[in-house]
Design a protein around this nucleic acid. Structure first.
Lengths: 327, 327
DNA sequence: GCGCCGTGTGTCAACGTCAACATATGCGAT
DNA sequence: ATCGCATATGTTGACGTTGACACACGGCGC
């Protein structure tokens, strides 16, 4: 900066004013300074800025490694919005759900220069009672527990699950079986409860839900179990990957999809449209979730207090994996 | 820091020495200082450190948003390794392949505090001649062009493509059709060339390759085109997603997989095992690629010069989507 | 007894930036 | 003519850390 100031024949402060477009600067001076910056290839030193201002213009994101497709998309959206707002992203991966690694992530974070944190970890896995979230550091939760004191941003899981279940009922199925996600996942729980509520509100039988771990493989295992049940004509899987596994299990046993059994997924994986048969699914909008998370965090940062964002809606995409039951 | 020093009855410099385990500190003093740090919840200010040392302990990653599954996994691996090495990750998303946005990413990066950059963008899209990579900033390329002056880390695309092609030939197919990735992708090009070389080295006919854009949908379109060709019994798709689309196209036309046509993918998507039929594919190891990229960058940072890493191998996973041709 | 070295600790300055304050000029209003 | 205000620029110090240097003490070899 000093070099630029000398080159332009002004003081460092004037350079600072030009860079930040703050305060009065004569037009001719501004041009001279900009010229000098150009010539010398000047870049403001962000460390010094951070030191001076106490702000790092950086957002920390805590996320499980090997995360789901949806979370990856959310991360992507967070990165894009953060970049738009002039913030950098610092990614803190958590290698497993072991509790001390989550705590370790926080410890690592505290030593890094972030102004706020977005946590993209299903809340049941993140037992807040045991992981102290650093005091005074704004936090936004994604895909998480409403009970928290921090603002959260999430998809409207309940609405999506209702859409899926109602679709199957509306085309004539007598009830809908459910392959749920892992017990400790908040999203899985909400999808399951909404599925149950939908059935109950119509006075229908509620079959015992099965449980997977989001992977296609666990969906396959659940599908194999369903083969033994009587009268399974409609299955709602808590995500698309498990739906893929369910489809495979039925196909392998010679049952036709959707002739014998209709299957609905959840997520809106782009590839779901190209499966055979194309999969009916609930489209989520992780890009909206990510952008909202950044916005909520920045609002907190700007001292606007914890702003609660409305849930992000979903849409049902009907494809060929669902059809009315055979009479 | 001053507070800790006062609390422990020492100077700030001694606190610094304790924190960094550098220089001589009496055992009793060390304990007193550590106690004080604990009590006061002291955290070193990374901005001040960076300002003083000129090092940020941060790696910048430039990557396309809406990136492929493999790149996401690579990012994940980079994050994990960086964290292990005590580095933070700053993610700079590039929203499209438009050239000025890539340049913009660099500009954004320069203003941020990074010690080095890992670029996870297929090199043909990143035309280096037109995007000046900041001078003096160590760079490692992933999934990229060998012609660059920077070290690169990559999967052995050629080996994988050869494995896939040879597998189909070895089980009796007369030739292998190819659905390639986008023309401007370096990985796509190498897979295509290796497929061609393998056929030619056996003196077999080389059918005209089709081209997709990595999506399942483009694979479907390619598959539809293949329906019109004579004698298609084996297809090697340049990634798993396009393979999914190819399978759909054939299925929809009433052709059996693998009875009428064998299909091989590339990537090793976890869900590929649960497709119907389970997909034969080439397993990549993005986690190794990511870790190597970080290692290579840190080596550069430590002044060890540009270290070239060997290519990461792949393995063929044979599943039920491939079978000998019908006689 | 003297100097030297290893150990333990403190003082000072500097990293690059910017807020706060001080200074200077010109112009319109009183 | 004087004052007030908007404009334009410079000076100073502080953000938190650490490298360089200085100082102090005790033990060892000669």
């Amino acid at each position: 900066m000093e070099d630029v100031a000398r080159e332009a024949g002004v003081s460092g402060q004037t350079v600072s004013r030009v860079v930040n477009a703050r305060g009065y600067v004569g037009a001719a001076t501004r041009v001279r300074v900009e010229d000098a910056m150009q010539r010398l290839g000047y870049r403001p030193n962000s460390a010094a800025r951070a030191l001076r201002s106490g702000r790092f213009r950086t957002i920390g994101v805590i996320m499980f490694s090997f995360s789901s497709y949806g979370n990856q998309r959310t991360l992507d959206a967070i990165a894009v919005r953060a970049a738009q707002m002039g913030y950098a992203l610092t990614l803190i991966p958590v290698e497993s759900s072991a509790r001390d690694t989550v705590a370790g992530a926080f410890r690592r974070l505290e030593e890094h220069a972030v102004d706020g944190i977005i946590i993209v970890i299903e809340a049941h896995q993140l037992d807040e009672a045991e992981v102290e979230i650093p005091e005074g550091l704004p936090v936004v939760l994604v895909d998480s527990n409403r009970a928290s004191s921090h603002p959260y941003v999430d998809t409207d899981q309940a609405q999506g699950a209702r859409l899926a279940t109602e679709h199957l009922l509306d085309i004539g199925h007598e009830t809908v079986w459910h392959v749920a996600g892992p017990a400790k996942s908040y999203s899985a729980e909400r999808r399951r409860e909404s599925w149950r509520d939908t059935l109950e509100s119509r006075g229908l039988a509620v079959p015992e839900p099965l449980s997977g771990d989001w992977t296609a493989e666990s969906g396959y295992r659940a599908g194999v179990q369903l083969l033994d049940e009587e009268g399974v004509t409609a299955v709602f899987a808590a995500n698309d990957q498990m739906a893929i596994g369910v489809v495979r299990a039925f196909r392998e046993a010679g049952r036709d999809i959707p002739g014998d059994v209709s299957v609905v997924g959840f997520d809106g994986l782009p590839d779901a449209a190209q499966l055979w048969p194309p999969l009916t699914t609930v489209q989520q909008h992780p890009e909206r979730v990510g952008a909202l998370a950044v916005d909520a965090l920045l609002a907190e940062l700007d001292g606007e207090g914890a702003v609660q964002t409305p849930l992000v809606g979903t849409e049902l995409i009907v494809r060929e994996s669902t059809a009315p039951p055979r009479r």
